[in-house]
Amino acid sequence: MNVLICDDSAFARKQLARALPADWPIKLHQAGNGQEGLEQILSGHGDLVFLDLTMPIMDGYEVLKALQEQGIRSRVIVVSGDIQPAAYETVMSLGALAFIQKPCSADKLLGLLLELGVYQSGGGIPEQASPLGMTLELRDVYQELANVAMGQAADLLARLLGQFVILPIPNVNVLEVSELHMALSAAAGEDTLSAVCQGFIGAGIAGEALVLFHDSSFADLAKLMRHQGPIDKAVELELLMDMSNVLIGAFLRGFGTQLDTPFHQGQPVVLGQHSAIDDLIRTNATRWRRTLAIEINYRIRDHRVQCDLLLLFTEESIRFMNHKIEHLL
């Protein structure tokens, strides 16, 4: 059997490959995005496909649609950090065989393969059709950790609002303070923002989480939250705090679980309301130095609701997290 793992994260591909049964007589292939994956499937390398959803160039939904339109009978198991009910319903309607949440343990994966009737013991070791790649870069690992945590936060937000949350590919970089200012400006665009900052700390890890909420989003968010009456600054502040609590809390829980490090959160602080990004940066410039920055842009489908979540880890935390990641690898 030709088995294809299609995921833009080399770390995620390695995790999944190691979770496959060691005695399963398969030929293992890999793809780094949906377009590569579709090409591999068309080449006959996808009898069974493990498919991520959030990928560049061509995402998992587009791959499933292409397979359905072309009548290709590959069996597809979606493996994703996006665990929203709407995501599950969509992929199943597009012909997916099953949907499992990242990260997936070897025991859970074996149980699923047995349930689906696609696994038969062969007493051998899976053959690698292509190498897992060069040494994994830490940036890729952080991106995959963020991808899983992002999906958990989106699931909670989707359930709260009864809507589908559009997820991006997390942007991960180690930035100097001047570069961070540029990243914040790029995230904001021309919009004015309301912003909340919340500190967090775990064993050897510390940082701040920022939620930058686009002011043009308040009207639609108020409707989704079933607010009645005028929308003044007090109402906007309440909505901003609700969004921040959901996104920051859920993300840190998901991120910390993967690193086996629970985080404790401080009191949220309002950095500004209806402010230009330059004003927010000028007011808080002394708070940030060189940092590991994880940036995620959340949008609600069919609504003008958009906010940016930024996780800023201290330089000292990076070394500690790198040590944690060595054990994951």
Rank of each mutant, 00 (worst) to 15 (best):
Q101K: 06
M225C: 12
Y88E: 11
I201M: 15
S80P: 00
K233N: 15
Q258M: 05
A158F: 01
K27T: 15
C6G: 00
H303Q: 13
A96G: 00
A234M: 13
Q273R: 10
R304N: 15
D278C: 05
A206W: 08
V3C: 02
D59W: 08
P85V: 05
L94G: 04
D140C: 03
A86E: 12
M58F: 05
L175K: 12
K14V: 04
C104H: 06
V305F: 05
G256I: 03
Q273F: 05
L136C: 10
D47A: 07
K65A: 07
L312E: 01
Q84I: 02
A153F: 00
D8N: 09
S185P: 01
M55G: 06
M58W: 06
M92S: 02
Y142G: 01
D107N: 07
G124F: 13
S130V: 09
S216P: 02
Q267Y: 11
Q84K: 06
E295S: 06
E236F: 04
E176R: 15
E179K: 12
R301F: 08
I201Q: 15
Q163A: 13
Q143L: 04
Y298F: 12
L180R: 07
A222E: 06
V63C: 10
S185E: 08
L42A: 12
R226H: 15
A188S: 13
S217Q: 01
K233L: 14
L309P: 03
R319F: 04
S9H: 00
L51P: 04
L109W: 00
T54D: 11
Q40C: 13
I166S: 15
W288Y: 11
A17T: 06
Q68H: 10
G95L: 01
L110H: 12
L292A: 00
A146K: 03
Q101F: 04
G254A: 06
A98R: 03
A276C: 03
G189K: 14
G37Y: 03
E179T: 15
A22C: 11
E127A: 07
K14P: 00
E190M: 13
V196H: 13
S130P: 03
G37W: 01
E238W: 10
N33Q: 09
D107Y: 09
L224P: 06
D23C: 14
D59Y: 08
S74R: 08
I296E: 03
L112V: 10
Q267H: 10
L175A: 12
V91D: 01
A203N: 13
S105P: 01
D8L: 00
H214V: 13
N284E: 11
R18T: 11
S194R: 14
K102F: 02
I277G: 03
